[in-house]
């Protein structure tokens, strides 16, 4: 009896002694705010909101593993003005790590190009943390269109500028950007027909009101039966829609990757050690298998994660594309 008790005590003591060594936090000296506000510039229930709510529980745990301090991240929905309200509030927030947020690309640079946005200049105001969600654009030809192939429709838009209609969420959306990118690459000139959201755009696409529809992955999944042809604006095929060729495969044009990107960023000025911790915590979260399966269950289009500088590069790339296409937006009358 005595020996068993002795053994147990020894075991217990050794566990207590070993535990901190096993779980020793990497950054024990970094002070983490007790609550971290995560600003989402769209309503609760939207796709950005869903991303935040799926990511944050795992991210909190990752921070605790890294620093040994517990924190709770709360989502703050600040919708309005096409996202500008939320992003402005993020850019002006105390840069002490108590506030981060989701920035949406290409919406952030596009809104800045369109008007005096409160968060200007965005590349300097936001510090990249990490991103793992890019919802690629898909271009589809409607089954009721008089054109038989996308190539034929693009050809008609070259011969007779403005005669081919493209319906999409917009204006100034990622779909709108993708359309101009295709125009620029092919020399075609479409007529852009904006709808207030993906759902009405899909309806019009199915009803045959427009020739071409540009949307994201799930827009294509929902309207698959109404499309004669479709192509994804990526360099490689996208896993969820393996049967859809890339624009390069189908049309032979090289235009790069387009889609709707939702990434986490902090207001610039946030202390360097905290930025480091947050980035590593996002890297750990994005690679967590439970998180990945939960995200897939919720139809979140996750891609290979990009953390820190890699995300910064993506942000700069988005700004460059916006500047590149700016003249087309101005010609279309969408930006003054």
């Amino acid at each position: 009896m005595k020996t068993i008790t002795g053994w147990l005590v020894t075991l217990f003591l050794s566990l207590v002694l070993i535990y901190p060594v096993l779980a020793a936090p990497k950054y024990p000296d970094v002070e983490v705010p007790g609550t971290i506000r995560v600003i989402v510039a769209y309503n609760a229930g939207g796709s950005s909101d869903a991303l935040a709510r799926v990511t944050l529980p795992t991210w909190e745990k990752a921070i605790e593993d890294l620093t040994g301090k517990s924190t709770s991240a709360i989502v703050v929905n600040l919708p309005g003005a096409g996202g500008e309200v939320g992003w402005t509030s993020l850019s002006h927030a105390q840069a002490d790590g108590s506030t981060i947020g989701i920035i949406n690309l290409p919406a952030v640079p596009i809104v800045q190009a369109a008007r005096d946005a409160g968060y200007e200049p965005w590349l300097e105001k936001f510090t990249a943390l990490g991103v793992n969600v890019i919802d690629p654009n898909v271009i589809r030809l409607g089954s009721r269109s008089k054109y038989n192939t996308l190539a034929e429709a693009i050809d008609a838009a070259k011969q007779n500028p403005g005669s081919v209609t493209v319906g999409a969420d917009g204006p100034l959306s990622d779909d709108h950007v993708a359309m101009y990118a295709i125009e620029k690459a092919t020399g075609a000139k479409f007529t852009f027909i904006p709808y207030s959201g993906g759902s009405p755009a899909n309806r019009s696409f199915m009803s045959g009101e427009v020739d071409i529809g540009i949307g994201n992955v799930f827009d294509h999944v929902k309207t698959k039966t109404s499309a004669k042809e479709a192509a994804v604006l990526l360099n490689d095929r996208y896993p969820l829609i393996e049967d859809v060729p890339t624009v390069k495969e189908l049309l032979g044009i090289e235009i790069g990757e387009f889609g709707s990107t939702r990434g986490f960023a902090a207001p610039t000025g946030t202390p360097e050690p905290l930025v480091q911790v947050y980035r590593e915590a996002f890297a750990a979260t994005f690679n967590d298998e439970d998180f990945q399966s939960e995200a897939k269950k919720r139809n979140i289009t996750i891609v290979k994660p990009r953390v820190g500088d890699e995300f910064t590069k993506l942000m700069e790339e988005n700004e460059r594309i916006t500047q590149d296409l700016l003249q087309l937006f101005i010609d279309g009358g969408f930006i003054k």
Partner: peptide
């Protein structure tokens, strides 16, 4: 609010609360 086709702002008096 913003014009549904062009996104131009109307009668918003620089109040982001009125943009939509």
């Amino acid at each position: 609010g913003s014009h549904p086709m062009t996104g131009a702002l109307r009668f918003t008096f620089n109040q982001p609360a009125l943009y939509e």
